[in-house]
Design a binder for these strands. Structure first.
Lengths: 221, 221
DNA sequence: GATGATTTGTACGTATGTATA
DNA sequence: ATATACATACGTACAAATCAT
């Protein structure tokens, strides 16, 4: 049923491989090597690489082998920062723009996450968490905002995942979600924004505690 | 001195053509036609098109001719909305992060725009305006934020340009800049954000007055 | 609905640029 | 500094898909 082009399948595969850390940052990506590896010619590889470069996952220098974008710690911090603001904005707008059905759904979904927390099911929580945040993106009723929030979130995803494994982080995260939901239902958009900003700030801090100063790797020359 | 690849020159040419409305939205872009038009083969054309698709300027469907992205009025409004928030955030952060030199430079540059306003030199003001806003992006000291602000601004540019031609808009715009600068120098980041948000909101409203409901063009089928 | 014209998707060979010995 | 190695950049041929007839 799904029509897909070779470039597309390669693109998604490579995306997964990079986000899933199966391709380490800094790795050099040889067109020819990838081509035989995927059993395709170099052309679709090239096009996939372009798109990856556009989304920031690989770095592309003229006439040089593409690199899996090295995770610049500074840039990462910047993205977390912006992510918090984007999501805070989403929360604020969602408070103002969500209709009754969306509010009810958000509240219900939030409550449905309680058992997951009780069971300490990190994998399930992670999945539900994405849904939760996405509901708020949607609630903001701004497609462009949703788009940049999603793409930022996607790029942060691999760095964000671990923090949920911190002791008691699940329960705390769920509490923070609760504050956000409460603010939204109450119609207090500033409180919603602040709660969301706080939620993401804590996420980042937890992360910093867990993965202290991953060495910045190779500084070329 | 500048080394450039064929794909790059084609990319910038096409970008200019699209942003400059020489290629109308909805136009179908034939690879082969573009190829001979640029005196190149289809390969660099294709790669340029991918990158344009990534930046949202063209739409790319499998096995179908690429389209110059039709300017969806809703999406445009959404982008204006987000742009205002992004720039407000930049202003807020710049207030907190700019060093003394940057503050002085911003203030000086702002003042240097006064003669341009007096002469009603729209072209010069437009150019200076970009510099002004960019100085604030830089002041925020967040490369990622700057990146998405710039790309949003770039895509809005063609829709934004005309409004400066509205009567007395130059003078008003300059006044609004003044409020932003004052707030930043005063160290009031909330005021700076609000002033910036207001500035962009007025920009949008002026635009709406000038170009009332540009007909949405051809609805295919 | 099938067929042909047109256009994109893919393969691969050659040219060119970059880095290293 | 020159030459050599190696990967991309570009060109062209062919396959596959879409649209019109």
């Amino acid at each position: 049923m799904k029509k897909t082009t070779r470039t597309d399948t390669i693109l998604t595969r490579l995306t997964q491989d990079i986000l899933g850390k199966r391709l380490a940052p800094g790795t050099t990506l040889d067109e020819t090597r990838l081509a035989e590896q995927f059993g395709a010619s170099r052309t679709p590889i090239r096009e996939a690489l372009r798109q990856l470069a556009a989304s920031g996952l690989v770095e592309l220098r003229p006439h040089r082998a593409p690199l899996v974008a090295p995770t610049n710690d500074l840039r990462l911090a910047e993205m977390f920062d912006v992510m918090a603001e984007l999501e805070a904005l989403c929360a604020s707008r969602a408070t103002l723009a969500m209709n009754a059905a969306q509010r009810a759904e958000l509240d219900a979904f939030h409550r449905s996450m309680a058992p997951i927390v009780r069971d300490s099911d990190v994998a399930a929580y992670r999945a539900a968490n994405v849904v939760f945040h996405t509901m708020i993106y949607d609630g903001a009723r701004n497609g462009y905002l949703k788009q940049i929030a999603l793409s930022t979130r996607e790029r942060l995803a691999p760095h964000r995942g671990v923090q949920l494994e911190a002791p008691a982080r699940l329960a705390q995260s769920h509490l923070e979600h609760g504050e956000i939901v409460t603010a939204i239902l109450r119609g207090d958009h500033e409180a919603a924004a602040n709660a969301m900003r706080r939620h993401l700030t804590i996420t980042r801090e937890t992360l910093a505690t867990l993965a202290p100063a991953r060495t910045s790797g190779d500084l070329p020359k």
